[in-house]
Nucleic acid binder design. Sequence first.
DNA 1: GTAGGGTTAG
Length: 704
Amino acid sequence: MPILKAPRNPLVYLKAKHITSIEDPVRLLKLAADTKNLELGKLIHAHLIVTSADAFSNNIDVIQSNFLINLYAKCGQICIARQLFDCMPVRNVVSWSALMAGYLHNGLDLEVLGLFKRSMASVDDMCPNEFVLTTVVSSCSTSGRVQEGMQCHGYVLKSGLVFYQHVKNALIHMYSRLSDMEGAMSVFNTVQACDIFSYNSILNGLLEHGHLKEAMQVLSIMVSKRVKWDSVTYVTVFGICSSLGTLRLGLQVHCRMLKTDIECDAFVNSAIMNMYGKCGKLVNAAKIFECLLIRNVVSWTTIMAAHFQNGYFEEALNFFVNMKLEDITPNEYTFAVLLNSSASLSALRHGALLHACAEKSGFTDHMIVGNALINMYAKSGYIEAANEVFSDMTYRNSVTWNAMISGYSHHGLGKEALNVFRDMITAGDSPNYVTFVAVLSACAHLGLVQQGFYYLNQVMKQIGIEPGVEHYTCIVGLLSRAGLLDEAENYMRSVSAKWDVVAWRTLLNACYLHRNYGLGRRVAEIVVKMDPNDVGTYLLLSNMYAKARSWDGVMKIRKLMRERTIKKEPGVSWVEIKDTAHIFVSDDNSHPESRQIYEKVGELLIKIKQLGYVPDIAAVLHDVEDEQKEDYLSYHSEKLAIAYGLMKTPTEAPIRVIKNLRMCDDCHTAVKMISKLTNRVIIVRDANRFHHFKDGCCSCVDYW
DNA sequence: GTAGGGTTAG
């Protein structure tokens, strides 16, 4: 039967429960502790003091005192619990155990270890039992104390306490938390039977550490042994489905759950929504969210994350508004999802606003928020701010380092990227798969061919990271950038990686930039076969023909595009001015200040022509006169956006422009000169990378 | 009398 929550006045509560006298104070103390009813507990405590045999010495017996320690510990009053404990003339193992559990549940795990050490040396008759060891082992889990945890395991084995179910489960959990899955499995496989707690702990540990195959094996044991799942099992198994990304399994588990009488609490619902989101079924996740009667911060964050993961960044951000309307306070995970959504939109102002919100709510100290901030600033073109957040962080993990290294890499700042990598090694953090993608791409930016191979063949091997296609693609980029095109092609043909269209396109782009049109055309054929709908390839190919003055070739490509009904995606650029993102499409005059903008572009072009700018009319695909070709180039979207930025921002402010396609040669040359002419820093994020234009130069050193 | 497992980020 559920226990009613007590009214504010405990006397009224006692009356309501038909308790007219406190005959059994200990039972009431237990009730108060279990329902976390501090007021009732205090009342009983007062009663005990008044009615104790010797009221003046407050001499309450050991059992009653133990109940009181438990009461105060459970109600979050650990200091009072400690005072009581310290005042006890005689203590027993339960006194120690109750206080230790209190410290553990109040987040003071290191106090537990201290108390345990003290207890072993104390005059009290304290032979640690299964309760004590369960609590102490748990505190090793939460405090990350590997050494002490293993010592406890030794003691537990010697003393025979390992045969207690709680102790075994605490050990499985401890090894899982301390990332020792071999240790966890060895405890899991001991003769002592497993209950649902053991299964849940081992499943969770395997999931957390990415051992999905082993998790599935345990799951199949559970199924064959007909172990009854509880709601925690479902949460964990949905987590496994999410990590595997297999919708089929997810649906099976969801069906199984619906057939049982499992209570679908906030945990379970969030786990299901997360599963659907990660398996690409956003609609299912959204449906569950809409049907939820009570939504907590995790439900909101989960549905935002599902939208973010499926590419609906703006929608993810919009949930924040509704969440606030329902008076739900965001947490660090909420800010991480919001910042990452903002990052994917390169929405610097919005991201900075979120940064301010997070700062105000005190979440910027959390590592996941710091990581998301680095990502947001880097992807929004403000690499200096990313570095500022990075430098201020007290705790870093591999994601932190990776975000900064790849941030620098995307901005073409290879030296800085490698410096951060060196700091990562010095700090003793282990680089992973993602780290080396960023490191190798930094090597490519710097043209460090030998160093790149050294990282791939020596360092990665030493650390035990199996290179993947992303790493091999970086090597292709590295060779290509250094102009070693034949070597790059040979490399692709000799290494048996699963070369994808990205890798071939890297080589193709290199052929274009190094004007090796023969190899370029051959590679382009491969790329077109792999992705016949990619406009970029046709344009590159056509440009290559144009640069080689092979007009037949240009015609051929144009015909091919017509036949395959491939349309050029319009170039779109945008620039944030105050609260608004101003969007420009090439040759578009829908902006209210269009006339002034065109005038500004014209004015800039005249001035940079005096500095030596020559429009790259060969790149224009239209069948028109040269003069008209120049017009087509003049009003490319990024030129419009930059002109508007120059018109609307103070002279010293950098201009940040985002573009959907790769920047064309002509714009690249023009923007370099505009940066010199106007003495501005112009940062353009195109489909591939960032270009920092300053003093007539670009950070990509004209290779992109 | 005191003890064990779960949701959202990359």
